[in-house]
Design a protein around this nucleic acid. Structure first.
Length: 109
DNA sequence: AAATTGACGGGTG
DNA sequence: CCACCCGCCAATT
């Protein structure tokens, strides 16, 4: 587990229920503005993802990005259970659901 | 060190 | 709105 990965994990863990963040947003807060794909790679790689609200991370287009149909539906259901309006294609309104953490919040952890 | 992987982002037609 | 392409960067092999 590298420091960068730990940053990403901490940021994702700080996403409140019923809200989402984009990969790019997480990457930027973790210190890499163009590191959206790295965040995706980390989420894919992390088997310890159990315990992480990984389902609260979506693409910038406002849709679920997971490829595996099973995991994809799981993410959609988890979000719906938190009150997020997601359609069958995994699309939602980022204007309603996107979470913008306070600078102090991410600093303290 | 080079190639590969990956759940991205933004622009274009 | 949708399909497609290219650039981006870290971890893994």
């Amino acid at each position: 587990m590298t420091p960068y990965t730990e940053r990403v994990v901490e940021i994702i863990k700080a996403i409140p229920r019923g809200r989402v963040m984009t990969y790019g947003q997480v990457a930027e807060l973790a210190g890499s503005r163009r590191g959206a794909r790295q965040v995706a790679w980390i989420l894919h790689s992390l088997s310890e993802a159990c315990g992480l609200p990984w389902h609260r991370v979506v693409s910038s287009k406002g849709c679920v990005a997971v490829k595996d149909e099973e995991a994809r539906y799981t993410q959609i259901l988890l979000l719906q259970n938190e009150g997020v309006e997601v359609d069958e294609q995994g699309r939602m309104d980022l204007h309603k659901t996107q979470y913008f953490p306070s600078p102090e919040t991410e600093k303290r952890g």
